[in-house]
Nucleic acid binder design. Structure first.
Lengths: 336, 336
DNA sequence: CTGAAAGCGCTTACAG
DNA sequence: CTGAAAGCGCTTACAG
């Protein structure tokens, strides 16, 4: 596994040129004779030579690498991470790779593995932080890191001091409300955190209630009971809602995981979806599409989200795009 | 964003020692006076100094980084990647981080972004390749890369020349068969690729049919029709199976995504699950748990898989653990 | 226990 | 267009 790797000096010797010429030829610097360049390329190929990225990065003071931190729930199994974040990770990876950059990922959940030194150590040129906003300790840690001068970009809305980007939540909430009202629903509930530090849930609720108000409908607001994860919270919330408002005929859940839990709760209670109760989620996760019926949802443009996050992290030194909204659309499927 | 970072010389000056002493103190080298060490640590903290990983890696010839490549289906949206691979990615990340290593991830799908030079460039110390075995071009590329001397570890069974690790598929197939027979099923089908290069599907089928044979039951074998993804293949396979064998009373699908598609197809055809037809999948993806009814499945121990893959990639220079089987268990939920 | 110095493998200003 | 040389920021053998 450990044959000493060839260096640019080995390539130089084989090509019969100096080491500096090898470097120039391989970096496509201007002013290298075409024939020389070809000879160097051939020698490099024959030797299986690849530029040492550490030496190169050290010299250039840039690593062409982006660090992506995903904040997890403490104790959460890695395979249980909200699939929305995995999907966002995928779109960030695509945007990173399109720029020829590498992506360093890190899942963090507690003081035992909090780390924000990717940029400080030169490992990465910029950092993006995504993941659950429910992990207070993690966000306090990153707030402290930011206070020391480290700039990074967040998805969601963990708090005011951060540079962030998030879905156009208000518009999404409005789309959900309009769709439910247009399909004849009148006793409409919002299931989602009301007193959370997570601004995006407030925005979804506010956009939703504002649109309902325009139709003269006051929403039923349901705070999901505490539970192991969003799905379990949704199940419990459905039962609580039905107990307090048996005549509810539509529900907008603040996230798909919550909505999938609500769907299960409604079925357990013998309610038919969408005949008895219509249901709309938020996020567009794939599992929603495989639910029965398939979950109608507000779907952010994930490709746009990944692209915008990476662009802001890598190219927008002053974070002038902080606060940008990612467009959402209503994806009508089976539940509403 | 670009204040010049402090170096070990800056720390040395502040602590009133030489640069070499700073390096030793910070690396916890033996033979550094405790008081000196403390002074250096304090100076580093005050300056916000972090060791430059490129300089360090260049000197040490080791990057403490693992590269993880996920092979995708060409044209596939990043958010549509089989969630099993995201879950595996998560468990690999956990095992990597437990060793204090960094994880570099790369999603690859076509010649436009094939890359295997993470180790050759010094960026990573080892490489793991996971993802769909259906992308022939990708695996040909990695086979060629391996032929040039690059060693890496794969999940699944893309082909014989690779060092691999995979689920105990045969045992899993047997568990599925025994469970179906024990619950009284007799007209039992296997839905999964029969003529694929993907050994793990063969193994699941073989373990399944062998166990069925012990009960004197011949299986109905169904090759899923070509479709956009496994889920769509499952839907189509269910319809094809019902057309050919209307009296089928149990199905074992080669993967959860396939099973979820089968479940949808069965519902479309008006069959009740599990009353009319029992269904078992393979993989233990989270979406299966949220299906209605929740999908009974064969679940590999993902934590063990991540740990074993990372250990083999990082610590097993001769790949002596190639061929290791990850244990699986039957997770009985709603569909069987 | 500590310091001066070499060297890891590059990139590029400088000189020709 | 090409080469000799400096220097990126570390780690560690060598000397004291």
């Amino acid at each position: 596994m450990k044959t000493p790797r060839p260096t640019s000096f080995d390539v130089a010797e084989r090509a019969g040129v100096s080491q500096s010429t090898v470097s120039r030829a391989l970096r496509n610097s201007p002013g290298v004779n075409a024939e020389t360049r070809a000879r160097v390329a051939a020698a490099a190929r024959e030797l299986g030579y690849v530029v040492d990225r550490h030496a190169s990065s050290l010299r250039l003071k840039s690593s062409e690498t982006l660090a992506l931190v995903t904040v997890c729930r403490p104790g959460e199994d890695r395979s249980a991470i909200n699939p929305f974040y995995f999907a966002l990770l995928g779109s960030i990876a695509a945007a990173t790779s399109a720029r020829g950059f590498n992506l360093l990922v890190s899942f963090q959940e507690s003081a035992a593995n909090f780390r924000a030194d990717f940029v400080a150590s030169g490992l990465a040129d910029a950092m993006i932080v995504i993941g659950t906003t429910s992990n207070r300790a993690a966000w306090d840690y990153f707030a402290a890191a930011q206070a020391t001068g480290l700039g990074f970009v967040c998805w969601g809305s963990p708090g005011d001091p951060f540079h962030w980007m998030r879905s156009d939540n208000g518009t999404g909430g409005g789309l959900a409300a309009d769709h439910l009202v247009a399909s004849g629903r009148r006793r409409i509930a919002f299931v989602g955190p009301q007193r959370s530090p997570q601004r995006q849930f407030d925005e979804r609720r506010e956009g939703f209630t504002a649109a309902l108000a325009a139709h003269g409908i006051p929403p039923i607001l349901v705070e999901p009971p505490a539970a192991a994860d969003r799905h379990a919270q949704g199940v419990a919330a459905a039962h609580a809602l039905l107990a307090a408002h048996p005549d509810v005929d539509a529900i907008f859940a603040a996230s798909d995981m919550l909505a999938l839990g609500v769907l299960q709760g409604l079925k357990e209670a013998g309610r038919r979806v969408p005949q008895d109760i219509a249901l709309i989620g938020f996020d567009g996760i794939r599992a929603g599409n495989m639910a029965d019926p398939a979950l109608t949802t507000i779907e952010p443009d994930l490709d746009a989200a990944g692209e915008a996050l990476v662009a802001m992290a890598l190219e927008d030194d002053d974070f002038t795009h902080s606060g940008t909204r990612i467009p959402v659309r209503l994806a009508v499927r089976g539940t509403a």
